[in-house]
Design a protein around this nucleic acid. Structure first.
Lengths: 216, 216
DNA sequence: ATGGACATGTAATTTGTTACATGATTGC
DNA sequence: GCAATCATGTAACAAATTACATGTCCAT
């Protein structure tokens, strides 16, 4: 039982696509990722897919062959090997699960909300809610398409999760609207002229507090 | 009103830290990011913070000076300029908001859940729930530390959001537990020997369906 | 005076994107 | 025949992390 090589999750995602035992081209994988994995992990560029496939082939996790049939130019299709199937299976269950990576631009802007007018911030949140609705609509379409095949039972689980995720995200956003007003009021009460009531060095005390509490 | 330069959100986040009008060093910013922005956007490496600060200074958005006092070696502290404050203010409100970037390793593993035993998958989800609880606990500590200062009203909004986010994430995970069992049953019913019931080329039909429905 | 935490930074590497080139197929 | 789209790939670049080097402060 040899050790698994250190690969970024993206590599494993590509290998996972091949793990459904179909011969797939890079193009296929990109498209599939867009409408399935893309809702919770990954929507890579074509070029990254192609280079990941090369790496997987070099590792012996996939084989490729030139596909000729209807006369398509250089369509190269990949197939998972036994070693590849075993590796991705082990990765899925053995490797440590990191907390999700989240980069939430809306929250970043609210975090520095004192710089701007609260009405504009609220409009941004409303736009964001509309965006979530649109994503959810697209997901309903995508999930509907995958509804039949029993082999896709697990992808369907993740798509159901994504539906609930979009709904949760929407609710969280709606609660923000009131809190933005509250924060703004706190700010103008403590400093009616609009300047920030800065307490020099205060954040250092806070850091000390945090460290004390955790015991680091 | 000149155009804003194209900068990654990370740059704006650093500038946003300076936007609280305190002189901060790279080290300060990294620590602050860890316990505040880190809960929804960003937990960068020291080295990235340092290079972003250099970029911001080159752009005229910040100035720096060598800080000598208690005799610390090379402590360099940065301060935002008027141009910097105006730029980050405009960025926050003018630049398009992208959907959040999410990379959810647990869901990726469930997506390829047919490769593994459902009991192991469920254990992974349970571990994840515990992880969310731990993050939430840390957040309570961090947020408690920031509770007093009125200047931090908006950071507090984001921390409250993060608390609700962790709770929502926990609930979503709990619903997964039942769905994993369901998916597994669907799979063994359609193919009791454990091999995947693959329908060659079926995913292509699905892609066609998706495209047809969206009208792209 | 010495080990460890604090603090700053550079260099090398990896990950991932955008821009570009190019050929094949399909519909008009 | 020609434009649009499909499909594959390379090259250049940007973003971000890890590894490393180094100096300072503080407690013992």
């Amino acid at each position: 039982m040899s050790d698994l090589p250190e690969l970024p999750p993206t590599s494993w995602a590509v290998l996972g696509c091949l793990g459904f035992d179909e011969e797939l081209s890079g193009y296929d994988i990109k498209k599939w990722a867009d409408w399935s994995i893309g809702h919770f992990y990954w929507s890579p560029s074509f070029s990254q897919v192609y280079s990941e496939l090369k790496r997987l082939e070099k590792l012996g996790y996939a084989t490729s062959r030139q596909y000729r049939d209807t006369g398509v130019r250089g369509r190269r299709v990949y197939q998972i090997t036994d070693a590849g199937r075993e590796a991705v299976r082990r990765w899925a269950i053995e490797s440590a699960v990191e907390p999700p990576i989240l980069k939430h631009g809306v929250m970043l802007r609210i975090w520095m909300g004192h710089l701007n007018d609260p009405e504009q911030l609220k409009q941004m949140v409303k736009d964001y809610i509309a965006q979530m609705d649109a994503l959810n609509q697209q997901l309903v379409i995508d999930a509907g398409a995958a509804a039949e095949d029993p082999a896709w039972a697990f992808p369907r689980v993740t798509m159901n999760w994504a539906k609930r995720y979009y709904a949760a995200e929407r609710e969280l956003a709606e609660q923000l609207l009131a809190e933005i007003d509250e924060a703004h009021e706190t700010l103008i009460k403590s400093s009616p002229d609009g300047t920030l009531p800065v307490h020099p060095g205060h954040w250092r005390e806070v850091e000390a507090h945090v460290k004390g509490a955790t015991g680091t």
